[in-house]
């Protein structure tokens, strides 16, 4: 079974995140593989280990995005594809999904396209559905469990109202939640092996995508303004000396919650 895992290089969520003057995300600071993508990589590795085939990791991003691929290769993925083209900068989800879909076609549509549940920067969680739509493949998203057998993928999707069992024929686009597994850490052997693994770099021209249909200029949405929310002012902090609960209740009463 061959699997393409789509991953994203994102600003560190632990650091302060900012916008550029053109209202795009500031990506100049240290970035890393989006944490939620590690679950998709882990799931892909498990599926291939139990069967056969190879795992390709695919990313779009500036030079630094090679770090996200490297981490995936260190975890055990077989090869990487890095789409790096200045014209892509500022793309919204519509544009990004176009580039990813064309790259998946060029790579040769695999049995599974795997993704995380959302990126940790944009947090939209819409790319998997957009990819399924563009590729004309079944969409099995937000999977909390996953099994592949007899040419079909079976997943459990937990919603607020119900927990659903989903079945689809391969090939399919599958996204996984952070409940599905415990991503492995790269081993020393994995780190050494990753240095020899192939990474191809593609441009928009390689994909036959018109530069005008992506990037900030080709975006379907426009950011009108960004403003930093003022930090919350710290309120009163009391130390419990046997009356902490009473003081808490008094605060709630003063604010008319009780």
């Amino acid at each position: 079974m061959n699997i393409v895992v789509c991953v994203k290089y994102v600003p560190d969520t632990q650091a302060d995140r900012h916008f550029e003057d053109d209202n795009t995300t500031d990506r100049t600071g240290d970035g890393l593989l989006s944490e939620l993508d590690e679950y998709a990589i882990e799931e892909a590795l498990k599926l291939v280990e139990a069967d056969s085939g190879e795992v390709t990791v695919l990313t779009i991003g500036p030079a630094g995005a090679a770090d996200a691929l490297k981490k995936a290769l260190q975890m055990g993925a077989d090869k990487g594809i890095h789409i790096n083209d200045e014209a892509i900068a500022g793309s919204d989800a519509v544009g990004t999904s176009l580039v990813l879909a064309e790259a998946i076609k060029k790579a040769g549509t695999p049995d599974l396209v795997l993704t995380g549940m959302a990126s940790t920067d944009g947090t939209m969680g819409v790319l998997p559905a957009m990819l399924a739509e563009r590729l004309g493949l079944p969409q099995v998203t937000m999977s909390a469990t996953l099994a592949v057998a007899d040419g079909a993928v079976r997943a459990r999707r937990d919603g607020d109202a119900a927990s659903e069992q989903i079945v689809a024929a391969l090939p399919a686009v599958v996204s996984v939640t952070d409940q599905i597994n415990e991503p492995r850490y790269p081993s020393f052997k994995g780190i050494m092996a990753a240095k020899k693994k192939p990474v191809e770099t593609w441009s928009l021209g390689d994909l036959g995508v018109d530069a005008g249909s992506v990037g900030l200029g080709g975006a379907y949405t426009e950011v009108l303004s960004v403003s930093k929310r003022p930090p919350r002012e710290q309120g009163e902090i009391v130390t419990d000396e046997g009356d902490g609960g009473t003081k808490l209740a008094a605060f709630l009463a003063a604010r008319k919650f009780i």
Binding site: R232, Q234, I237, D240
Partner: peptide, 11 residues
């Protein structure tokens, strides 16, 4: 506690 309107340090 940096975010709170009211906080209790306690069990």
């Amino acid at each position: 506690f940096e975010l709170v309107d009211f906080g209790v340090v306690g069990d």
